[in-house]
């Protein structure tokens, strides 16, 4: 018998006999008639395909939503604060009505100002190391200040608080300035005035903080590390907020023209130069 003929296989297979077919069907029938193998049982099959991704999705959704909810009360410097900012950003991006969007942006700017007030009122007094603070409270007579030893830990803590205040103010101003730029695009005069007012309030608060820093410096006369850091922070804040040195209860009007800004900057520079010369 030839197996390959005209490029085709010549094979004869033995088909299933009647008995084999019967046996086969009985075997299949016994298995499929039990409810465990019903074809309509769709859910358990979906289980592997849908339940796991669904569970992951729900978990992620709960986690992100939960974090967003928890982050509502976060303050600058907190772990959840970036989450709060991101959540606000998402809210802004999902708001398409320009009117509502600028209202929301203003609301968030007010929130930044509120946070600044909270952080500053909480931390300002803590810049003074506990040792110096105790001495300050004990000072009932006009005896000359005794040199107190400030621990390294306290020093670090003081500088940390100072940094936090400093960064909070800088970030808040950046945030408000960005919002202002965004609002300028909508040419809504009323909203622009409101954001300018917020910037002014922030400048006022910064000026008050700078005054507080002057007082703090007096309370820690012997520690140069902290003092130097305070001086640096003061200088940077004055530059950033375009505040005139030693200006008390005054603020720079943000709505003034740019030329005025330049003049002020020049004045600042001149004064700085003078200071440097006198130092020399």
């Amino acid at each position: 018998m030839k197996i390959i003929k005209d490029d085709k296989l010549e094979i004869q297979t033995r088909p299933l006999s009647e008995a084999e077919t019967q046996r086969l069907w009985q075997g299949v029938y016994q298995r499929i008639k039990s409810p465990a193998t019903k074809p309509l049982n769709i859910w358990p099959r979906l289980g592997r395909r849908i339940y796991i991704p669904a569970a992951i999705f729900i978990l992620l959704f709960t986690l992100s939503f939960g974090t967003a909810v928890l982050s509502v009360n976060a303050k600058p410097g907190d772990v959840l604060f970036p989450v709060k900012l991101a959540y606000e950003k998402v809210q802004l991006q999902l708001t398409f009505d320009p009117e509502k969007k600028s209202d929301l942006a203003l609301h968030f700017s007010q929130e930044r100002l509120k946070e600044v007030n909270e952080v500053l009122s909480q931390n300002s007094n803590k810049i003074i190391p506990p040792e110096a603070r105790a001495q300050d409270e004990d000072k009932t007579t006009s005896t000359p200040p005794v040199k107190v030893e400030i621990k390294e830990e306290s020093k670090k803590e003081s500088i940390k608080k100072l940094e936090k205040n400093h960064q909070t103010l800088i970030n808040a101003l950046d945030y408000l300035e960005n919002t202002k730029e965004e609002l300028k695009k909508t040419s809504n005069e009323q909203k622009l005035e409101e954001i300018n007012s917020l910037v002014d309030q922030l400048s006022d608060r910064t000026q008050n903080y700078l005054d507080d820093l002057e007082e703090i410096k007096e309370k820690i006369p012997n520690n140069h590390d902290i003092k130097n850091r305070i001086n640096r922070s003061e200088k940077e804040l004055k530059e950033k907020f375009k505040l005139e040195p030693k200006q008390i209860n005054g603020r720079f009007d943000q709505s003034d023209s740019d030329s005025n800004n330049n003049n002020n900057n020049n004045e600042n520079n001149e004064e700085n130069n003078n200071e440097e010369q006198s130092d020399n």
Partner: peptide, 18 residues
């Protein structure tokens, strides 16, 4: 082959809904 074919038909029955 008969045993495997039987298993295959059970699998087909289960898989038919999709």
């Amino acid at each position: 082959s008969l045993d495997i074919t039987q298993e295959i038909f059970v699998d087909i029955w289960k898989a038919l809904p999709r």
